[in-house]
């Protein structure tokens, strides 16, 4: 006759409840405390505090001769060009400025501008140094906030945004334009006092027929430290 081992006695239901319920209660209390902290301390009221205040200063007025940035289209990041502020720099009184710059003429009755030049960079020349490719003079009217001369634009709005740019947190100003004539559509420039040359961080376009395109401007810290163009 086999002797069946007596089953190990399980704790009676009431005792089990006594063990698990206080534990469950503790866990729930902890969850309420953590979630409450996240909701009311971590998230509470930060939206207004984080929204950047509007205090715009025209970054084009701070352009210094020799400052430079690389720029490239998002669709063709391998084709990099360099924008350099020319020695004429910021020309607030065109009537007393140069009559010609490169192939550009009749400048004394132009709108006030920053004189720059573009260089297409040779492969691997990210230092934006002297190039065998001739530079092309390009003017940036001071009131057009990042749109070059010759683009017919009408400004819609200016608004500060808090963004990340090249691992830094920046307040940039998004300027929205309607462009007419060539390449019509909605254009946007993003400007920051902390970005060199024109303060341009990015320029985007939304063409009715061609879709969206973006041009990114990239700071050239090492070349800027090396001196003039």
């Amino acid at each position: 006759m086999s002797v069946r081992a007596a089953p190990r006695s399980a704790p009676p239901p009431a005792a089990r409840r006594r063990v698990s319920e206080p534990f469950l209660l503790l866990v729930l209390c902890l969850m309420v405390a953590v979630l409450g902290y996240i909701r009311f301390v971590g998230m509470g009221g930060t939206l207004e505090a984080d929204a950047p205040e509007f205090s715009f200063r025209n970054p084009l007025l701070a352009a210094q001769p020799g400052e430079r940035v690389l720029f490239y289209a998002r669709e063709q990041p391998q084709q990099v060009s360099c924008l350099v502020v020319r020695p004429e720099g910021v020309v607030t009184r065109p009537a007393r400025g140069p009559e010609h710059l490169g192939i550009l003429g009749d400048l004394r009755r132009e709108r006030p501008y920053v004189a720059t030049e573009y260089k297409a960079l040779e492969r691997g020349d990210l230092a934006c140094g002297p190039s065998s490719v001739p530079a092309q003079a390009v003017l940036y009217p001071l009131n057009d906030l990042g749109m070059p001369q010759g683009t017919q634009v009408r400004m819609h709005s200016i608004q500060p945004l808090r963004v990340r740019w090249r691992d830094r947190e920046l307040v940039v100003y998004e300027v929205v334009f309607e462009r007419y004539g060539m390449l019509p559509g909605t254009w946007r420039t993003y400007l920051s006092e902390d970005a060199p040359a024109l303060g341009l961080v990015k320029r985007t376009a939304l063409h009715p027929n061609r879709g969206a395109e973006e041009v990114h401007f990239q700071e050239l810290v090492e070349a800027a430290a090396a001196g003039g163009p």
């Binding site: 309420v32 979630l35 409450g36 996240i38 909701r39 998230m43 939206l47 984080d50 929204a51 950047p52 205040e53 509007f54 715009f56 009408r154 400004m155 819609h156 709005s157 200016i158 608004q159 500060p160 945004l161 808090r162 963004v163 990340r164 307040v171 309607e178």
Partner: peptide
């Protein structure tokens, strides 16, 4: 309730990368 509130609050916010200030409507 707290979890739902956190989800709704986070969903209603602009992403961090695009927190916007007041807009000057030049147009």
């Amino acid at each position: 309730g707290l979890a739902a509130s956190i989800v709704l609050e986070a969903h209603g916010r602009e992403p961090y990368e695009r927190r916007a200030g007041p807009r000057f409507e030049v147009g």
